[in-house]
Nucleic acid binder design. Structure first.
Lengths: 342, 342
DNA sequence: ATATGGAGTGTAAGCGCTTACATTAGTTTG
DNA sequence: CAAACTAATGTAAGCGCTTACACTCCATAT
C-alpha cells in the first residue's frame, strides 16, 4: 500500500543472486542466459514488481523505442483514424507513440520537432511535405528518420499516402462525364497544406483538360468547418451563370454545402451536384449520401508504421508507398439540370 | 549537412568557458546565473544547436515532464476531441503527452500503464473508473498521480467529467414530459464502461420514477457503430407494443437508429422519437437533427490537464470537477403518435 | 582593518541502465 | 591429456544530466 521506492536493476540482481549485467541480459537478450538463471531472475523481477527505468535505459543504450507524430490536430476524423492505426501498429513492434499537434502552424511544428528530438525519438511521422526547408534540415542533421504521410511529397524524402491530385482529377472527370460544364470548387485552405493544394490542382487540371480554363472555374478556399463550407456554397450559388456542380476539398465542406443547398431550396443532385473527399462517417449519413473519394486512413496509418520501423532499423524501403483511393458514387452527383437556372 | 554528433552539456560548457553546472543552471534556473555569463552560455547553446538530452535529464532529476493518457481509442470523436484539448493545455505547461489506447480492454490498459510507468510519466489520464482494483493499486504503489475523466467515479480517486447518470435521467424526463410511456433504450456496451452503464442507469431510474418498471423498458446493448444501432432499432421496432421513443446511449447509435427508421418507412419524430447523447458533429448534420445531450469534451480535456498538473505539483485540488451537460432539443423528439401502431 | 555573509561559480557524486571486456567453467580436439 | 575453444556470467566504465556542497569574491557591518 505504501509508496515503495521503485526497485532498480540492482535490487533485482541482489534478490536473484546474480550481477546486474545478467539481469539486463535476461530482459534484452534472453538467449544469452541459461534457462535456470533466467527463471530465477524473472521470479525476482516479478516478486519486486520491477519495471526498467526509461531514463536509464535511454541514456545507456541511446535508443528510446519511442516514435513521435506531429499532426495538425487530433480533432479531425481523418487524422484521428490514421493515428489510431499508426499507434496500434507501432505498439505491435514494442514502440510507444509521442503525440503533438501543430495546429497547422509550421512554427509550432518546428517547436514540437525540437521537443521530440530532445526526447530522443527514434523516428518521426509528419503530415505532408509542405514545410520550411529548415525544419527538414533539422531532422536530417539530427539523423532522425522521418516520414511524410497523407500525401506523396516531392523530390526526396519518404512518403506513404495518397495521390490527392490524381484522385481529385479522377473525381472531376466523373463529374464532367455526367455532362457538367460549369464547375466550381470549395477547396480547403491551401497555404502550407499540400493535401488541399493537390486536390485543387487535380480539379483544375482535369477541367483544363476538358477545355475549362481557370477563369471559368471559380474556387473558394474555406476552413475545415460546416459553416465555412455553407458560406462558400452560398457565394458560389450567387454567381451567374450558376455552377451546376460544386467539388469540395473534403467531406466536411461538402456537408456544409449540402446544408446550405437545402436552406436555399436547391435540390441535390437535381438542381446542383456536390462532391466530397475523404469518405468519413459523415458522408454516408447525410441525405442524400455524399458522392466522394474514399481515402483509407487506417491502411495508411499501418503502412506508415511499417515503413518507419524499417527506416529506423535501416532496412531497405521504397521511397513512397501509394495507398489507392476510390471514387464512391452515392447520391449527390447527377447530371446537370436540363434547363439550368441562370 | 552531415550527421553531427549531438552536442552535450559538456560541449556547451567548454565552448562558453564555464562548468557544466552553470550551463545546467542557465537552462533550468536562469536567475541563479549572472546576466553576462548567461548570455555567453546561451550563445554557445545557439551556436552548437544544443538541445538537452531527455534520458540524462530524466535520470538525474527524476522528472520527465511527460504525462500519459490511456484512452479506449482515438478513433472516436469524443475521445479525440477531449484528448486534443488535453494535449494543448498540457503543452502550455511544458508537458508532453504520451498516448496509448486500450481498445476497451482492461488487460491492455494495464499493460499500457506499466509501459508508461516505466517511462516515468509524471501523471496519468485514464477514462472512467471501471477497472480492476489491481490496476489502481499499481499506480498508487508507484506513486503516480492519476485522474479519471469522462465520468465522476466512485468513492475515492480524482475525477473530472460528467454526471452521465443525471444527464441521461434528465433527458429521459424530457421524453416523458412529451407524453411518451413506451420507452426503449439502445445502450452502449456496459461491460467495463461506466459511461455506458451510468447512462443506462439514468434512463432506468427516471423511468422507474415515472412508474415504468425495468420489465417495461426494453434495453439492447449495441457496439459503437451505425450498423449496430440500426440493427438494435430494428429489433425494438418489431416489439409489440412498439416503443414510441428510443433513447440511445450515444449519437452514433442514434444516427444508426435514424437511418433504420427511414428504411422502415417510419417518420421521425411523428411515428417514433429518437434521442442521442454527446452532441458530436454528426448530430446536427442528420435530418432531422438529433435531440441529444451536449457533452463539452474540450472543456473537460482542459480541466483534466489543469487538475493533473496540480496533482503532480502537489497543489491542493478538489476531488472531482463536474462539467455541466445540457439537453439540446432539436428535431428527433416529438410527442408520441396519437394512435400508436401496435 | 577584520569578520560576516551572500552571490556566483565550480567540483564531483551519482541517477539506472547497457555493454565491451575479463573471467571462469565446461567441452572439444589433436 | 594439454591446448583451444565456447558458453555463461561478472566487472566496471560510462551515457548526459542535476544538484549538494565547497569555494572564491567582494560588499557590508563591526
Amino acid at each position: 500500500m505504501s509508496e515503495l521506492a521503485k526497485p532498480t536493476l540492482d535490487d533485482v540482481a541482489r534478490a536473484a543472486g546474480v550481477s546486474t549485467a545478467t539481469v539486463s541480459r535476461c530482459l534484452n537478450a534472453p538467449d544469452l542466459v541459461i534457462a535456470a538463471t533466467r527463471e530465477r531472475v524473472m521470479q525476482a523481477v516479478e516478486a519486486l514488481g520491477y519495471t526498467p527505468d526509461f531514463g536509464g535505459r535511454a541514456l545507456a543504450s541511446r535508443r528510446t523505442n519511442t516514435v513521435g507524430a506531429i499532426i495538425p490536430t487530433m480533432d479531425n476524423a481523418i487524422f484521428a483514424r490514421g493515428l489510431q492505426s499508426f499507434q496500434e501498429a507501432l505498439s505491435r513492434f514494442g514502440k510507444t507513440l509521442l503525440v503533438a499537434s501543430s495546429g497547422y502552424s509550421p512554427a509550432r511544428e518546428r517547436e514540437q520537432m525540437e521537443v521530440m528530438a530532445g526526447r530522443g525519438v527514434d523516428g518521426m511521422l509528419l503530415i505532408g511535405s509542405a514545410r520550411p526547408e529548415a525544419s527538414v534540415e533539422f531532422l536530417r542533421r539530427r539523423g532522425i528518420p522521418f516520414l511524410g504521410a497523407w500525401n506523396l511529397g516531392g523530390e526526396d524524402g519518404y512518403f506513404v499516402g495518397f495521390d490527392n491530385r490524381a484522385a481529385a482529377a479522377g473525381l472531376t472527370e466523373a463529374v464532367l462525364a455526367r455532362g457538367h460544364r460549369r464547375l466550381a470548387m470549395i477547396a480547403g485552405i491551401t497555404y502550407m497544406n499540400d493535401r488541399a493544394a493537390d486536390r485543387m490542382e487535380g480539379v483544375r487540371s482535369a477541367a483544363e483538360q476538358a477545355g475549362i480554363g481557370a477563369d471559368q472555374l471559380p474556387v473558394i478556399e474555406a476552413a475545415y468547418t460546416f459553416d465555412d463550407g455553407a458560406k462558400a456554397f452560398g457565394e458560389l450559388m450567387a454567381l451567374s451563370p450558376r455552377p451546376t456542380a460544386v467539388l469540395c476539398g473534403n467531406d466536411v465542406l461538402a456537408v456544409g454545402a449540402l446544408q446550405k443547398a437545402r436552406e436555399l431550396g436547391l435540390r441535390v443532385p437535381e438542381d446542383v451536384s456536390i462532391t466530397g473527399f475523404d469518405d468519413i462517417d459523415l458522408a454516408s449519413v447525410v441525405d442524400p449520401k455524399l458522392t466522394t473519394v474514399r481515402v483509407p486512413h487506417n491502411r495508411m496509418g499501418e503502412a506508415a508504421a511499417e515503413m518507419l520501423i524499417k527506416l529506423i532499423s535501416k532496412q531497405p524501403v521504397e521511397r513512397r508507398i501509394e495507398i489507392p483511393t476510390e471514387i464512391i458514387e452515392r447520391g449527390t452527383l447527377g447530371p446537370p439540370p436540363a434547363d439550368p437556372a441562370v
